[in-house]
Write a protein that binds this DNA or RNA. Structure first.
Lengths: 160, 160
DNA sequence: CAGTATGTTTACAGATCTCTGAAAGCTCGA
DNA sequence: TCGAGCTTTCAGAGATCTGTAAACATACTG
């Protein structure tokens, strides 16, 4: 009678955690479905999932899965793994994906750096604009140097 | 006759740089109008801008400006400055905004850390899931420790 | 080589989001 | 306390985005 009050089983908890993380990532700019696919692959208790698995788990169409995967693979978060004995494609959350994800920030850092330079080139010294852009340039120069080093440092520490 | 071929003047270049950066930020998850307001304040040759300035510069309504500002102020990217002699509010791109922006990443790092822990709590050892989540936990633990230190390090170096 | 199982693309529909315009709400000076 | 000058809020219009379904492409199997 009180079975309904039982604690969530592990599977439910994982699914729940997946959905919540997906929501957060979505708020951070990632497409909602893309985020859901990614977190499903992260929290699944299987090693890999097929497109059909993802359709069912997330209740979305195969088209949506295809689109999401198409976004996740190029950025290195997910990989397609050969599936011997199965005709279906299998997908797996990629090792080192988090470091990869953080590395993408790096591209952004360089965009910012470039943007600062552009502004500096177009404005005279001694203006408020110049001061603001100098700070921007200084900050992103620093970060563009330090962040990759940090990530590399983690990679070494984790593997070694 | 060939006046149309002249080089863009500085003002145009700045406006252009502003719009391009805004676009990039928008692709990175920031609201489009919010990004435009932010970059307008960054690249303007004035020290501060009023809401009316922003309306005109960006060709948007005052409501849109209000909404954008409402998002930018709490996160510390823009500040409202008292404007003696003017009844209008003046807004200024805030000093140290970039470091602030990067610090927000920190919140994200902790969300990720929490998400990893949740998953680990819900799954058994030795599973692929556990391995993935351990890596995630390790990475974000590392980053949550190192990133703030880096930012602090920049602040010291820039000010001193 | 044909048939079948799967993945991908596309046009359209539905949902969501964001801007605008107008009205309401503040704030400050008189 | 009133009123002018701005800002904020809100409902609705418009645009954008995204998922679905179905057609299409591809790759395996017998």
């Amino acid at each position: 009678m009180f079975a309904i009050l039982r604690a969530m089983d592990a599977k439910e908890q994982l699914r729940d955690a997946a959905e919540r993380l997906a929501l957060t990532l979505a708020q951070g700019g990632m497409q909602k479905t893309t985020a859901r696919v990614m977190t499903a692959l992260l929290y699944t208790e299987q090693d890999t999932m097929t497109a059909a698995d993802l359709c069912e788990e997330l209740s979305i169409s195969s088209g949506a899965v295809s689109t999401a995967i198409k976004q996740l693979i190029p950025v290195g978060l997910v990989e397609r793994v050969p599936a011997p004995g199965s005709r279906r494609d299998h997908y797996r959350f990629r090792e080192g994906a988090w470091a990869t994800l953080m590395s993408q920030q790096n591209t952004m850092l360089n965009v910012m750096l470039h943007a600062a330079q552009e502004g500096i080139d177009a404005t005279g010294d001694g203006t408020p604009t110049a001061r603001r852009l100098r700070e921007m340039q200084d900050f992103y120069t620093f970060m563009a140097r330090e962040l990759p080093a940090q990530i590399e440092s983690w990679r070494k520490q984790y593997q070694g």
